[in-house]
Simulated assay, not measured.
Amino acid sequence: MVRVVVVDDEPMVCGFLRTILGSAADVEVVGEAYDGAAGVEAVRRSGPDVVLMDLRMPGMDGLTAIEHINRLPDPPHIVVLTTFDADQYVLRALRAGATGFLVKSTPPEELIGLVRTAARGHTVLSPSAARRLVAASTDSLSARDRAREVVASLTEREIQVLAGLGEGLSNARIAARLHLSEATVKGYVSRTLDKLGCVNRTQAGLIAHDAGIVEP
């Protein structure tokens, strides 16, 4: 069972998401909140697998809530809810540790599958969306410098694995590309995330884009 907390300042949006997700036998909405602070408390209280998080809310906004949630022991996977996929606030949320994002116009039939994907720890973000967000960043120069600095600590093989993460590849596809076992790639991914100080594959993938390891 995938346990979900929904955080959005519009009760109608929360109700819609609850209805859609509740139609799946393996998904349960275990919490609902209308601002970031209440969302953090809902996560503490219910221990979900996935949080669907709006960004622009009164009081504590979604970005601050994401930072608080990622400081909790064993934090859930956080997926941002947004109206526009080129929103720079979304990029800030991804850099803060969100697993990916969903545009609020996502068709209901796709929503459940994407939540399941997030629950498995996979990125809910297409490589093309990542490139678009990074290209539109007003902080691109400083982000590039920071990314190249942290990537310098990686081995050649770790950089190859990081490139795969930037392209949104699974461990199996990275393994096939590099002629390694999937278990070996899993170890490389774990070490790469540790070296980069990333909480998930999405953060690492953005660093790959920032550093120029993945071509636009």
Rank of each mutant, 00 (worst) to 15 (best):
V2M: 02
R3H: 11
R3T: 10
V4C: 05
V6D: 06
V7M: 05
V7K: 00
D9F: 09
E10L: 13
V13W: 00
C14V: 15
G15T: 03
F16M: 11
R18A: 10
I20S: 05
L21K: 01
G22H: 00
S23V: 04
A25G: 03
E28D: 13
E32F: 00
E32R: 02
A33V: 04
D35G: 00
A37G: 02
G39P: 03
V40K: 04
V40D: 05
A42I: 01
R44S: 04
S46G: 00
L52C: 08
D54L: 03
P58H: 13
G59N: 14
D61Y: 06
L63P: 07
T64R: 14
A65V: 07
A65R: 06
A65H: 08
I66Y: 05
E67S: 07
E67K: 15
I69T: 02
I69L: 05
I69P: 01
N70C: 13
R71T: 12
L72R: 03
P75I: 15
V79M: 10
V80R: 03
T82Q: 12
D85V: 10
A86F: 15
A86M: 14
A86T: 15
Q88A: 12
L91M: 08
L91C: 14
R92A: 09
R95D: 12
G97D: 12
A98Q: 03
A98I: 08
T99Y: 13
G100H: 04
V103G: 07
K104H: 04
S105L: 13
S105E: 15
S105K: 09
S105H: 05
P107H: 11
P108H: 08
P108V: 04
E109A: 01
L114G: 03
L114I: 13
V115D: 01
V115L: 04
R116Y: 08
A118V: 14
R120N: 07
H122P: 00
V124R: 02
L125F: 09
L125V: 05
S126Y: 01
P127Q: 11
S128E: 10
A129S: 15
A129R: 15
A129C: 11
R131G: 15
L133R: 12
A135Q: 09
S137Q: 04
T138A: 13
D139C: 02
S140P: 02
A143F: 09
D145P: 02
R146A: 06
R146V: 02
R148I: 04
E149P: 03
A152G: 11
S153H: 05
T155E: 10
E156K: 05
R157Y: 03
R157M: 15
E158V: 09
Q160K: 10
A163P: 06
L165Q: 09
L165S: 01
L165I: 04
L165W: 02
L165M: 13
G166N: 11
G166C: 10
E167D: 12
G168L: 01
S170F: 14
A172Y: 10
I174T: 08
A176W: 09
L178V: 02
S181L: 04
E182S: 14
A183Q: 09
V185G: 00
K186I: 05
V189M: 11
V189W: 15
R191Y: 05
K195N: 08
N200A: 11
T202E: 02
Q203D: 13
Q203L: 09
A204L: 07
G205A: 03
L206C: 10
I207G: 09
I207T: 10
H209I: 08
H209R: 10
P216F: 13
P216V: 14
